[in-house]
Design a protein around this nucleic acid. Structure first.
Lengths: 143, 143
DNA sequence: CTTGAACCTACAGTCACTGTAGAGATTAGG
DNA sequence: CCTAATCTCTACAGTGACTGTAGGTTCAAG
């Protein structure tokens, strides 16, 4: 029994457009079509798409996922390669947490000193206006 | 004494194209031009651009920054408004840290169990392939 | 006056989607 | 078999915050 794109989307927790996008960039292979041109998927597709969505939820980039999928497809799979992708990503996540923590500290400093009543002297705006008021620990944009 | 766009960029720690982009979206006002059409900036522009870059480094969106700049420009400035933008952003940063921390835990689980030698049984790929192996605490993509 | 750096505009590309328009396909019920 | 509702199709534009490129012009120093 085959699945329409909408059913696949529901089964794997993705949007229909996202599936078509993954097909377009070659992450999902082109499925068979009905005579009318609609996509029909096998169970395999649910697995693959779930893998992708899960990895995305973990913050892996589509490029990293492409590599992981290749490794997963490989029968003589090399675990060290997958491992190092995961480790690399873990390091990036740790770095982002550290950056966000120092942002948090700076934001708390900004907000704590300003009680919303002193109109002539707004700590939030002054901190942003004056570089020297804050010992800015991070000047890379962190999104 | 006026500044060229390149000098302004160096003074405020931005790229030339970024300044032109900020002008285009109305964050920076249009400066005077030389007869040949090149932009010439006043000292004021350094302050404004530094404000923007600093706020960006703190992860504020350009929309939030637009609001903060309006508040900063307002002589009878309302500190509570700036304060609440900062508080809102702080809450978002805290949420992102929490999300990343649970990602980190899941990634550590993935990586810790896999020692790179067991080729038939790769924990990283299996965790991604099989939803049930991980008690996934977060399924929103966190970037 | 010449040279080379800096500047100009306009546009495409990045990432990972999301949304839209307008048309065609499929399915369930009558 | 017909109809209506839902689903799907393609193609393209938009998101945020820039970055990069091409092809040309202007400026400042020597």
């Amino acid at each position: 029994m085959t699945l329409s794109i909408g059913m696949l989307a529901r089964r794997a927790g993705a949007k229909v457009q996202t599936i078509r996008y993954y097909e377009q960039i070659g992450l999902m292979s082109e499925p068979v079509r009905t005579y009318g041109g609609q996509r029909r998927y096998e169970e395999e597709a649910v697995k693959r798409l779930s893998f992708i969505r899960h990895a995305r939820a973990l913050g892996f980039s589509l490029d990293q996922i492409r590599n992981l999928l290749e490794l997963a497809d490989d029968p003589k799979r090399d675990c060290t390669a997958a491992d190092s992708i995961a480790r690399e990503h873990l390091a990036a996540v740790k770095a982002k947490i550290a950056a966000l923590n120092s942002l948090k500290r700076e934001l708390i400093r900004m907000v704590d000193c300003c009680n919303g009543t002193d109109t002539a002297h707004c700590r939030v705006i002054e901190t942003l206006a004056n570089h020297d008021l804050c010992a800015s620990p991070n000047h890379e944009p962190v999104q």
